[in-house]
Simulated scan of single mutants.
Amino acid sequence: MQKFVFAIGSTATIFTLFLAIRAFGIVSPEPPAMQVAQQPNCKDPQTQVEINACSGIEYQNADRRLNQVYQQLMPKLSAARKQKLILAQRAWINFRNANCEFERSQFEGGTMAPAIQAGCLAQLTKTRTTQLEEYIKSDL
């Protein structure tokens, strides 16, 4: 019985710590990693596990592209504008994460919740990437 109580207490402590870290914005939310025996067929996913995995992959690709474009934009800016972009990007990340967490909450506890969150993260990230690409094209 003591082992059981200890295990429950330890799990609760870890979970509380995780929530505190996320609440202070130290960690950007990532869709839960899905364990799939083989690579999912993202052209035609057949199961919720595949849909969740493919949504996570889509978000990872979108985030990678966003970071590439951000790195292309930064050298084109003056020091003052770089600071403004950094502030704007941090605010945008906080908005994106909170907004997608809200969207996910409608399906909390359901098997499609990870796909909803990852899809939201991917879509907003792609939109932000397009915005940053426009700044690059405008020759600032």
Rank of each mutant, 00 (worst) to 15 (best):
Q2L: 12
Q2I: 09
V5S: 12
V5F: 11
V5T: 12
F6G: 01
F6W: 01
A7R: 05
A7V: 02
I8H: 03
I8P: 00
G9E: 08
S10N: 09
S10C: 13
A12W: 04
A12I: 12
T13Q: 04
T16Q: 06
L17D: 04
L17Q: 04
L19Q: 15
A20I: 07
I21F: 09
G25V: 02
I26F: 15
I26R: 01
V27W: 12
S28D: 15
P29Q: 06
E30Y: 03
P31F: 02
V36G: 02
Q38V: 13
Q39H: 03
K43L: 11
Q48C: 01
E50V: 05
N52Y: 09
S55W: 03
G56R: 07
E58L: 08
N61G: 03
A62T: 05
D63Q: 10
R64M: 04
Q68C: 00
Q68G: 05
V69G: 04
Y70G: 01
Y70L: 12
Q71M: 06
Q71Y: 00
M74V: 14
K76T: 12
K76R: 15
L77G: 09
S78G: 06
A79L: 06
R81N: 13
R81Q: 15
K82P: 02
L87H: 06
A88T: 12
R90I: 02
R90V: 02
A91N: 13
I93F: 07
N94E: 09
N94T: 07
F95E: 10
R96V: 05
A98R: 11
N99L: 03
N99K: 13
N99E: 15
C100W: 08
F102C: 00
F102H: 07
R104M: 14
Q106S: 10
F107R: 01
E108A: 15
T111R: 09
A115G: 08
A115I: 03
I116N: 06
G119M: 05
G119Q: 04
A122Y: 03
L124E: 13
L124D: 13
T125M: 10
T127F: 10
T129H: 08
T129K: 09
T130P: 00
T130G: 03
E133F: 09
E134R: 15
Y135M: 15
I136Y: 10
I136S: 08
K137Q: 15
K137I: 02
D139R: 12
D139P: 00
